[in-house]
């Protein structure tokens, strides 16, 4: 009973806190541009508004269109239950949980692509094609990063992998994971969450035909995914395992905030890359993680 309550409470916390991140990013962007910007809680208002609105469905969409949004959200939520948060640990952890986490995110991607293709729109097809193609490189990078952590700590579950200090490769790992965070969450320089020029987008273009509650679910899922990656990055780099629980919590919070602000700064200072440069950047991220892996391996042996 306690376990169930714990599980539900954690999930509720995830659900409640996640929409803060896009708000902070937007605030940073506004601050850099010298504007006042939307309130930090803007996404909450948007979600509430969308939840009340009606749905316009494409004539071509099957019942699976709505189902895909819901399943995609559940998949991301499942991934969040596997990610430990500092001293509080994870709701669920077992040997090989990181594989389930990565594949839950993949399931979410499959659902988004499925829903996008339901509408028969060429633009949404284009976005889906980009999403699945860039995910190939992002997934290779992510597995290399997890391998680096696994080799470093000789642990096979996320709580063991993320707690101890990372070694010399931490900077490389941080760089690689940050690039993956940007790519997987469709931020600049891979995608521009603010533009409405469909030809140039990845994720936004896939949800063009979503409206009302399904769109709210998709947006909320995206914010949870952002928080997930920010937490993963922070804990992979910061040696929180050596701190007292309270300080570890503070450090993780500060880390996530730093990552979020970093995303905002990148978004303010960089322009979106041409699509042909995207594989190059992701390859760099992959190599960063690969070298972090080699350092963890050889550094540990020496």
């Amino acid at each position: 009973m306690i376990i169930a309550l714990d599980f539900v409470l954690r999930l509720a916390l995830w659900i409640a806190l996640a929409p803060l991140l896009p708000g902070i990013i937007n605030k940073v962007k506004a601050w850099v541009a010298g504007r006042r910007g939307p309130p930090v809680l803007q996404l909450y208002f948007d979600l509430a508004r969308l939840w009340r609105k009606g749905v316009v469905l494409s004539d071509l969409a099957s019942p699976a269109f709505l189902a895909a949004s819901a399943v995609g959200w559940v998949a991301i939520a499942a991934a969040t239950t596997l990610l430990p948060v500092g001293p509080a640990g994870a709701s669920l952890s077992f040997q090989g949980d990181f594989i389930l986490l990565i594949y839950c995110l993949a399931l979410a991607r499959f659902c988004t692509v499925w829903a996008a293709m339901e509408t028969g729109s060429a633009f949404e097809g284009m976005g889906s094609a980009r999403e699945v193609s860039y995910a190939v490189l992002a997934e290779a990078t992510l597995i290399a990063a997890v391998l680096a952590l696994c080799v470093q700590t000789r642990s096979l579950s996320l709580p063991g992998m993320l707690a101890p200090a990372t070694g010399a490769g931490a900077i490389l790992l941080a760089g690689g994971l940050f690039i993956v965070l940007l790519a997987e969450n469709c931020r600049v320089p891979f995608d521009d969450p603010n533009t409405h020029l469909e030809l140039t987008m990845i994720h936004e273009v896939m949800v063009l035909d979503h409206s009302g509650p399904p769109l709210a679910v998709i947006l909320h899922g995206a914010s949870m995914k952002l928080l997930l990656f920010a937490l993963l990055l922070t804990q992979a780099v910061l040696p929180t395992g050596h701190l007292a629980p309270a300080w570890a919590g503070v450090a993780i919070g500060a880390g996530v905030l730093a990552v979020t602000v970093g995303v905002g700064l990148v978004e303010s200072l960089l322009a979106r890359f041409a699509f042909r440069r995207v594989p190059l950047l992701l390859t760099m991220a992959f190599l960063l993680c690969l070298f972090a892996l080699l350092i963890a391996w050889k550094g540990g042996a020496a």
Binding site: L66, A70, T119, L208, P214
Partner: peptide, 28 residues
Amino acid sequence: LAAIAAVAVLLLVSRATKTGVRRGPTWD
């Protein structure tokens, strides 16, 4: 996961029917 996904699908579908579903051509 499968069970929760099924529940979530039902919830979202019921919510969508409650707020009203309109059909239209793909926006494109």
